[in-house]
Design a protein around this nucleic acid. Structure first.
Length: 418
RNA sequence: GUGGAUGUAGCUCAGAUGGUUAGAGUACCAGAUUGUGGCUCUGGGGGUCGUGGGUUCAAAUCCCAUCAUCCACCCCA
């Protein structure tokens, strides 16, 4: 084997692709029902888009981007997520001038230079939606409800929905002051990572996974306690709508989005038993994003779901996928005259919308039957010299094994009827 | 970026203490009387033992490096 696939990538082979088609179809369907329209943005963008739209203090931008110079000397980056690109397209196109809100969805590959592990890859795939132009808490509830509804349709169980509100920049400057004050006495006891966070972004100390920082953060002021009047009202409305829609949630005030343009609602969905990378989806409101990317102040909210993790969770939970497609008819032929008739019949079947296959390996009739058994068609048509002379063919039902003679000129109709 | 485990046929794995042409199951292909699948039986093809060095009379087996996979940390989907 000369060349292998790059690290952290994977081939989705024919034996697995039906699972992807199934979840992709389910996602497209729910998007239609919620009136979201598909957008396809480039796989690569100017690096600057992500530096501004994702945030240059995030791990994604600091150490996980696939960035390179193209032949024209431009800095290009393989998209690590799709929200910034959607915002870019929204501004760059006429969408921003049309009726609001603009509700978009996407499906596609994302790239992050991470170390692979269970449920984490360098090229991975996401479903996502983005809503631009509406700040109504009803939209927050809608996108959350939509993800939970989608998971529910796939049959996923024991999921945990966590929500939080990070408020607006005003709320956060209040919180920032309180946090600096709170951690000042224990500053030298924080992990090295958090010492840096103390200066740059004290909010992120709250979701540090180190045990010591967790202890020190106990009783720290949370975003929820610092919400201004309108942000508190917004969060209450979102929770009320979720209750109205019978969607259970838990408020997790340690879940923070550290950047200025993330505002108000943040949420994440966790699945048990798929390893350490248990988040199968997450999202939130980003009222400052469009402006950060150079556009007018525009509210927005969205989420992204990991397709690999969804499929992994379904497999771990023993959820059955609809069986993969199998061919309707196999055409077997014995002898060279029959071979010609087989080819003619094969294309006639296909022309009539019946999926059909024949042997191309010069197999014996017996071997053709074995091969047919593997393709698992509903019927096998058998063509031989004797039958051809009489203008008939054998039609064998492969599950019952029952075979009957059918006139060649009525074969297609006969198969269509069943 | 850090740490641990692993790397032998397409796949799942055997191959104590280094010793002749490297094995099994499965998959693939072909046979088991005249033109017919799923079961069974027989036979066959297929491996530079991840790669590169080193130790040795001799290495899949020991040592080093490297690459890759898996798992975890960081972080995220």
């Amino acid at each position: 084997m000369a060349i292998t696939r790059p690290r952290g990538t994977g081939d989705i082979l024919p034996g697995d692709i039906y699972k992807w088609h199934y979840v992709e179809d389910a996602f497209r369907k729910i998007c239609r029902e919620y009136k979201y329209e598909e957008i396809r943005t480039p796989i690569f963008e100017h690096t600057e888009l992500f530096e501004r739209g994702v945030g240059d203090t995030t791990d994604i931008v600091e150490k996980e981007m696939y960035t390179f110079l193209d032949r024209g000397g431009r800095s290009i980056t393989l998209r690590p997520e799709n929200t910034a690109a959607a915002a870019r397209a929204y501004m760059e196109s006429s969408l921003i001038a049309g009726p609001q809100p603009v509700k978009l969805y996407y499906i596609g590959p994302m790239f992050r230079y991470d170390r692979p592990q269970a449920g984490r890859f360098r090229q991975f795939h996401q479903f996502g939606v983005e809503v631009f132009g509406a700040n109504d808490p009803g939209i927050d509830a809608e996108v959350i409800a939509m993800t939970m509804n989608f998971y529910g349709r796939l049959g996923l169980k024991e999921l945990e929905l966590r929500i939080n509100s990070v408020g607006c920049p005003k709320c956060r400057s209040v919180l920032r002051e309180k946090l600096l004050e709170f951690f000042r006495p224990s500053l030298d006891q924080l992990c090295d990572n958090c010492k840096g966070r103390y200066q740059r972004n004290p909010l992120r100390i709250l979701d540090c996974k180190s045990a010591r920082c967790g202890e020190l953060a106990a009783g720290a002021p949370t975003t929820l306690k610092c919400l201004c009047g309108s942000c508190a009202e917004h969060f209450e409305a979102v929770k009320k709508y979720l209750e109205l829609l019978n969607i259970p949630y838990i408020v997790d005030s340690s879940m923070v989005r550290g950047l200025d343009y993330y505002t108000n609602t943040a949420f994440e969905i966790m699945a048990p038993d798929i390893g350490a990378q248990s988040s199968i989806g997450g999202g939130g409101r980003y009222n400052g994003l469009v402006e950060a990317c150079g556009g007018p102040s525009t509210p927005g909210i969205g989420y992204a779901l990991g397709i690999e993790r969804i499929i992994l969770t379904m497999e771990r939970q023993g959820i059955a996928f609809p069986p993969p497609f199998t061919v309707d008819v196999f055409v077997a032929a014995a002898g060279s005259q029959a071979e010609e008739e087989a080819l003619r019949l094969l294309f006639e079947l296909r022309k009539n919308g019946i999926s059909a296959e024949k042997d191309y390996m010069k197999r014996s009739l017996k071997a053709q039957m074995k091969y047919a058994g593997k393709l698992n068609p509903r019927y096998t048509v058998l063509l031989g010299g004797d039958e051809l002379d009489r203008g008939v063919a054998g039609l064998k039902d492969m599950s019952s094994g029952i075979q009957e003679e059918v006139p060649l000129n009525s074969l297609v109709e006969r198969i269509k009827r069943r």
